[in-house]
């Protein structure tokens, strides 16, 4: 309702929104506070034996007692976290390149050609999004690690992430290609251009925005995954950042400072990218596949 509200009502709404926004963003502030506290505990301040209301308030207020960069420095130098970030970057980067290329070619064919199996192929991509991950893990492990011998390598993960990202990317790009007018291509064909030339020199440059969004989606697929990564990568030096983060606060360790600092380092790039692209993602999600 875009009705006009009185000033008083506005004030009330602002009050509500302020409280809600504070509560909703509290976990984020909290992580920042832990990361900058320089300590590994969950508490932001020491609570003595008989804490008063204010002591407790101090312990939950998201501001570190002694702000320091120690956790950031330590997590990058003492812990192999920089290495893990690099692994993640390589895996996610390769995933992006491979899946964007494969998705572009496939989406172009689905958009521009008529061929037997076209509908079936698109449907198969869609249905594949519904395959439960747990059903695929054991076979994937057997295929990638045992048959292809790609356990403990970047390529094993890249291949798996690529195929995870492809269906969504194909649907998204096909939708975009459909909107590009076919006349330019037809005149190019008349001029004797080959399909490959048309694809690389006309269609791809026109589809840049959609490709950018697809690329970001593919990147995030690789950047955020941790289950397959923890199954495929057994050596600690090959962990990806998510596996490493979970390792900090897993069963045997409670290194919350490292976790918080690492989380911030890992999240900032994706959060920034996300803010720029969420509009496109939303439209892609609702028109394309159905999977998280």
């Amino acid at each position: 309702m875009s009705g006009e509200l009185s000033k008083k009502a506005h004030l009330g709404l602002h009050l509500f929104m302020l409280v809600f926004t504070f509560l909703a963003t509290y976990p984020v502030f909290w992580v920042f506070a832990i990361a900058f506290s320089g300590k590994q505990t969950l508490l932001l301040a020491d609570v003595n034996e008989n804490p008063t209301f204010l002591d407790r308030l101090r312990a939950v207020f998201p501001w570190p007692e002694h702000p320091s960069f120690q956790s950031f420095i330590d997590v990058l130098s003492d812990q192999p976290f920089a290495r893990w970030m690099l692994n993640s970057l390589i895996v996610a980067g390769l995933t992006t390149v491979v899946s964007v290329f494969l998705a572009c070619t496939a989406a172009y064919a689905f958009s521009r050609f008529k061929f037997p199996g076209q509908r079936a192929g698109l449907m198969a991509f869609m249905v594949s999004q519904m395959f439960p991950g747990t059903l695929m893990m054991v076979p994937l492990y057997i295929i990638v690690v045992k048959y292809l011998g790609l356990g403990n390598t970047w390529w094993g993960l890249v291949l798996v992430y690529t195929t995870t990202a492809i269906p969504f990317c194909v649907w998204m790009l096909k939708g975009y290609f459909d909107t590009i007018s076919i006349e330019i291509e037809e005149s190019a064909i008349l001029d004797g251009a080959s399909r490959a030339a048309i694809f690389f020199q006309i269609v791809l440059p026109l589809a840049k925005p959609a490709i950018a969004v697809t690329a970001l989606f593919a990147f995030m697929t690789g950047w955020n995954e941790f289950i397959l990564a923890s199954i495929f990568m057994e050596q600690e030096t090959l962990y990806t950042a998510p596996v490493g983060l979970r390792f900090f606060v897993g069963k045997y360790s409670q290194l919350w400072g490292y976790f918080a600092a690492g989380s911030i380092l890992v999240s900032i790039p994706v959060v920034v990218m996300f803010m720029f692209t969420q509009k496109f993602l939303v439209s892609g999600l609702t028109s394309g596949g159905i999977k998280g």
Partner: peptide, 30 residues
Amino acid sequence: NREAYLFVSPAILAMLVLVFFPFLFGVLLS
């Protein structure tokens, strides 16, 4: 349909090996 299949084949191949085959394998396992 040589051209069309040429364009889709890399993606389809990857999907066959790492999505559809594992799926069928999983069905078999069940």
